[in-house]
Computed example of a mutant assay.
Amino acid sequence: MKVQYLEIRPCVEHDGATHSFRGEPNPTYEFFTPEGAEEAAEAFRAAQNGEAGPVFWTIYGIDTEGLAQAIGDFVSQDAAFETLYAILGVMVDARDILEASRVRIADDDDHGERISNASAVLEDFINQCSNSERI
């Protein structure tokens, strides 16, 4: 599986199944924003009359076909984001190094363009994974 990006979703277990909630689709980009997701999870949980588990948070890897694979579950959204940022840390550093290099060799169009392209790939991954929050 090749992961295109990561996302965090609130989830609820009920009747042996995990239900995850993506929030609202972003019309400009191909990802969902977290707005409304937690509320939807809480509403689903409440509708189960005490038969559903508590809301928890899962990091998902989204593959090239848009299918989600759960990577890890967390008791809070903050804990999930802390782990997500730890995963992305090396990529953020690599992106920053590439960007600094691109600026220094801007006169060499071929190298500058390749560095810019590599930096853009990292930037896309980082931004899509952050659920609209700038890292």
Rank of each mutant, 00 (worst) to 15 (best):
M1Y: 11
M1Q: 12
K2D: 09
K2H: 12
K2E: 11
V3R: 05
V3N: 05
V3T: 14
Y5C: 04
R9T: 02
R9G: 00
R9M: 07
P10D: 01
V12F: 01
V12R: 00
E13S: 04
H14D: 06
D15S: 13
G16V: 06
G16L: 07
G16K: 13
T18D: 06
T18N: 11
S20F: 11
R22H: 03
G23T: 03
G23I: 01
G23P: 00
E24Y: 12
P25Y: 14
T28W: 14
T28C: 08
T28L: 14
E30N: 12
F32T: 02
F32V: 02
F32M: 06
T33A: 11
E35I: 12
E35C: 11
E38I: 07
E38P: 01
E38W: 07
E39A: 15
A40E: 06
A41S: 07
E42C: 07
E42H: 13
E42V: 08
R45Y: 03
A46E: 11
A46H: 09
A47G: 05
Q48H: 06
Q48V: 03
N49T: 05
N49F: 11
E51D: 10
A52E: 03
G53W: 07
W57I: 01
T58V: 14
I59E: 00
Y60W: 14
Y60N: 00
G61K: 02
I62M: 06
T64E: 15
E65P: 01
E65Y: 10
G66E: 05
L67H: 12
L67W: 13
L67G: 04
A68S: 10
Q69V: 07
Q69I: 09
G72E: 14
G72D: 09
G72Q: 15
D73G: 06
V75G: 12
S76K: 13
Q77R: 14
D78I: 10
D78L: 15
F81G: 00
E82G: 06
T83L: 09
L84D: 00
L84W: 00
L84T: 00
L84P: 00
Y85T: 02
Y85Q: 05
A86N: 09
A86T: 08
L88T: 03
V92T: 06
I97N: 10
L98Y: 06
L98N: 04
S101V: 06
R102N: 09
R102S: 11
A106W: 14
A106H: 15
D107E: 10
D107I: 07
D107P: 04
H111P: 03
H111S: 11
E113L: 10
E113T: 13
E113H: 11
I115K: 01
I115M: 10
S116P: 03
S116G: 09
S119M: 12
A120S: 08
A120M: 08
V121S: 12
L122Y: 02
E123F: 05
D124L: 08
I126S: 01
I126K: 01
N127F: 12
N127M: 12
Q128D: 14
Q128Y: 15
Q128A: 15
S132P: 04
S132T: 15
E133M: 12
R134T: 03
R134S: 04
I135S: 10
